[in-house]
């Protein structure tokens, strides 16, 4: 596996696993670095979120630099919320010079859901336009039509929401992202695997890799909250019941078991090309999720060796 780029891993036919970390609010990077240490040899790529939920934090590119320094494979999440086309391009140039080769092109959350509610938002580009901007930069020209002194090459991805309601407009957007040059997709959290399989039946006609979004459920309350309040997320009642029936203090373990079970099923039935695990603050249990999924031989939270433990 060593030396393989994320794009090569995507093309290798193996079941791909990515995960993500959230940079800190502040300059104490200890926890983020700890999470990178846990994940870097276990997963094929580590997303670094970009002021997720419009909460101001240490920047995604800063987190990616740390992933890179520690020998992990960073996936730069880049939203159009805070940057105009000048800033987007400039940051892509910086990323490239520092060995960051993967970029996830996102529109970005609304400012008003975050913690700087009166801040200006940009949204000069949308995610499809950002994908095209990446592909344009790769031609050696900037968006102003000027020659670049040294170009870029990125493995560019995007997101899709299989549970979006209504779904058809979302699928048109998905097609436009494919057309704009997305090579891989990480989905919003999916829990209803039958519905996800239906989505995959349609998505399979496109030559892109799709990683199912797995958000760790840590309690029945969280599951209920998400299904009722987060657009694009649906948690079936049987999963909520399963979490509620867990013994006191056992909901997290049940969530790990559910995530592992879903991943195993996705892999066994070859429903999609891999998974993107979002543990949202509980990154230390990602190894347990992988073990529950049967993707690692160990199953201990802290593998002693640094080598990649993926089953192929």
């Amino acid at each position: 596996m060593m030396g393989q780029s994320f794009r090569e891993v995507l093309q290798s036919g193996k079941f791909v696993v990515t995960s993500e970390i959230g940079p800190p609010k502040g300059t104490n990077i200890d926890k983020m670095c700890h999470h990178i240490d846990i994940l870097k040899d276990l997963v094929d790529g580590i997303n670094v979120t970009d002021h997720q939920s419009s909460v101001m934090r240490f920047p995604s590119i800063g987190g990616c630099l740390h992933v890179k320094e520690k020998g992990g494979e960073p996936i730069l999440q880049m939203t159009c919320r805070d940057r105009n086309q000048m800033a987007l391009q400039g940051e892509l140039l910086l990323a490239y010079t520092r060995g960051i080769r993967n970029v996830l092109c996102l529109t970005g959350d609304s400012i008003v859901v975050g913690d700087h509610k009166s801040a200006a938002d940009v949204f000069e580009f949308d995610s499809a336009q950002l994908l095209r901007a990446v592909r344009h930069l790769e031609t050696g020209k900037d968006l102003g039509g000027n020659d670049l002194d040294g170009g870029v090459q990125f493995c560019a991805g995007a997101i899709v929401t299989p549970e979006a309601k209504p779904f058809e407009p979302q699928f048109i957007k998905f097609e436009k992202k494919v057309e704009a040059g997305a090579e891989f997709f990480q989905t919003q959290a999916v829990y209803d695997l039958d519905n996800f399989a239906k989505f995959m039946d349609r998505a399979r006609q496109f030559r892109v890799k799709i990683l199912a979004g797995i958000v760790l459920l840590v309690s029945a309350r969280m599951a209920k909250y998400m299904t009722e309040n987060v657009p694009g997320i649906f948690v079936p009642q049987n999963l909520i019941d399963e979490l509620a029936a867990a013994p006191k203090g056992g909901a997290l373990n049940k969530g790990i078991e559910i995530a592992g079970r879903m991943i195993a099923e996705l892999k066994k039935n070859a429903i999609c090309d891999g998974v993107h695990i979002m543990a949202i603050g509980k990154e230390e249990v990602v190894p347990d999720i992988l073990a529950a999924a049967g993707l690692t031989s160990g199953g201990t939270a802290h593998p002693a060796s640094g080598k990649t433990l993926h089953a192929s």
Partner: peptide, 12 residues
Amino acid sequence: KHLLNGPCGGTN
């Protein structure tokens, strides 16, 4: 978000 190419994932 004044998007020109279709809805975002927040369509509800």
